[in-house]
């Protein structure tokens, strides 16, 4: 099963790309671009979690923004009561994992595309709770004056922020790639491919579904903790259904379960529009339209287009090798 080779094949290109992006940001970014670089790093983390879950379960998780919000709010609240910021990532991961576990357990008996509906509902519940539990979250006004890692972003500390977030991206990439090539990852693939056959070899589907949701949620919780310690300000609107939809869209556009695709897609559909100062409104529109078009013509996302482009280039330029992409590998998700 060539675990280590597969691991390197999926981890190295994506990690190298992240390193290049981070380096470019370190060398060339002004204050605005540094902000874009940071936020894009957060997006990559969120998308990686979603991509892992969707790719391995074949089901949509529609509440990444909720897990993200839980990680952000809990670490913010703890820090406002004196917890040192360097503990925040651990807190974010733990909160995410616990809430993922709860959601996963609540949904153990749910199979197939019902999970999309349940998680959609849970995402909306989290957003409403953030708005309604005013005594804790300060409602729609939000939390102000949350401690940060290095103070407000400025020319002096922007490098620190970029290193922290992109370092986290690479760590998350490594962990997810390891997980995917581990025994756990193989069992997930088996379940996604055929539930009946997976049960016949002794795999309990519910257990693995819970574990997958937990992993995705833990990753989102980490993103939340990092974001808090950069922004110093949280409002419920940051964690709305719209964000979950964008995360899902970015993951699908990148090609489900392709880590490189997830990174590229986050850069193309989140980083670049922000660099170009495209308003959130247009960004949302572009997402919607591109997602629809992509699903019509290349349902496996950027990674599929990439594979196709490479094979076309080989045939055109070198006249060898690639052949037709075969039906079994280019299945619709």
């Amino acid at each position: 099963m060539n675990g280590s080779r597969r691991f390197l094949a999926s981890f190295l290109p994506a990690a190298a790309l992240c390193a290049v992006v981070a380096l470019a940001a370190l060398l060339f970014a002004d204050a605005y671009l540094a902000q874009v670089a940071f936020l894009t790093g957060i997006t990559v983390i969120l998308v990686l979690g979603e991509s892992f879950a969707v790719g391995n379960m074949g089901q949509l998780l529609m509440c990444q923004a909720g897990f993200y919000g839980i990680g952000a709010y809990v670490s913010a609240l703890l820090e406002m009561h004196g917890m040192p910021p360097y503990l925040a990532p651990a807190v974010g991961i733990t909160c995410g994992a616990v809430s993922g576990l709860v959601v996963g357990l609540a949904a153990t008996r749910i199979r197939g595309h019902y999970l999309a509906i349940v998680t959609l509902a849970i995402g909306v519940i989290v957003e409403e709770l953030l708005n309604n539990l005013q005594g804790i979250t300060n409602g729609p006004i939000g939390l102000v004056g949350v401690p940060t890692f290095f103070g407000p972003l400025n020319a002096g500390n922007q490098a620190d922020y970029i290193v922290v977030v992109w370092g986290a991206v690479i760590v998350v990439l490594g962990c997810l790639a390891l997980l995917r090539e581990s025994r756990f990852g193989w069992f997930l693939r088996a379940i996604r491919d055929s539930e009946a056959a997976a049960e016949s070899i002794g795999l309990r589907i519910g257990t693995y579904q819970v574990a997958t949701v937990t992993v995705a949620a833990a990753v989102a919780g980490l993103a939340g903790a990092l974001y808090t310690n950069y922004a110093g300000l949280l409002v419920p609107d940051l964690f709305s259904y719209g964000l979950s939809a964008q995360i899902l869209a970015t993951a699908v556009l990148g090609g489900i379960n392709s880590f490189g695709g997830a990174v590229v897609s986050s850069l193309v559909f989140n980083g670049v529009p922000q660099m170009a100062q495209v308003t959130a409104f247009y960004q949302y529109l572009i997402f919607g339209v591109v997602l629809i078009v992509m699903m019509q013509f290349a349902p496996r996302g950027l990674s599929q287009i990439g594979v196709y482009a490479v094979s076309l280039a080989r045939r055109r330029l070198l006249g060898w090798g690639a052949g037709q992409p075969n039906a079994a590998t280019v299945r619709r998700p």
Partner: peptide, 25 residues
């Protein structure tokens, strides 16, 4: 996307985003 279950589900998310932002525009 007839016959697929996940495909239409995903595109419907895209459709929702597109309609929302078009109307807002």
């Amino acid at each position: 996307l007839r016959g697929s279950e996940l495909g239409p589900l995903i595109t419907s998310v895209g459709l929702s985003m597109a309609l929302e932002s078009l109307v807002q525009g």
